[in-house]
Amino acid sequence: MKQDFENDEWMKGVRETGFTTPAHYFDELSESINARISAEKFKAVIQNDGHTVPDNYFEKLQANILAKTIAEPVAKPKVVRLWNSSLLKYATAACFLLVTGLGLYFNQRNPVQQTASTDLATDQMLYDIDEQVIIDHISSADIIQPKSTAADTDLENYILTNYSQSELATSL
């Protein structure tokens, strides 16, 4: 009885040391130990993985990596100073001439183009009308000769009374 009491007191002391474990620690501990034992057993028989590399591979690997890193020349971007370049002056002059030239050319060309395009449209319109339709239209049209307000004899008399023979001869 006394011994049980002492044991409980000792256990109480142990419990009160302040140490804790993660949740479910003791449930997983046995599994962890078994897995470790199995892994140790593997290790006792299989120390390495059996993979190999070609001869002097790591020396070549280092050289290859260095060639792609340290030895790789850093490509510096080429800076072209646009505003100080004489190329810009020539390019500006060429653009100015080109724009002016094109402006003048199209200005002169426009009226000609317009007339030409109007004529072309008329021609096209006539071309589109059937030829027989035009012939029928002309033949059926009531073409009226302008009526003379004065008779031919009246005109003759007027001329003969107002103009002399010599004046008529010079005019004809």
Partner: peptide
Amino acid sequence: YQQKIYWHIRRMVIDHDDADDLVQDVFV
């Protein structure tokens, strides 16, 4: 580190040539 990294990659991709390409990419 090159050997450690090579073996780490090799065990995953198995083929030596693939591991060789990858280890170079890693160090670049």
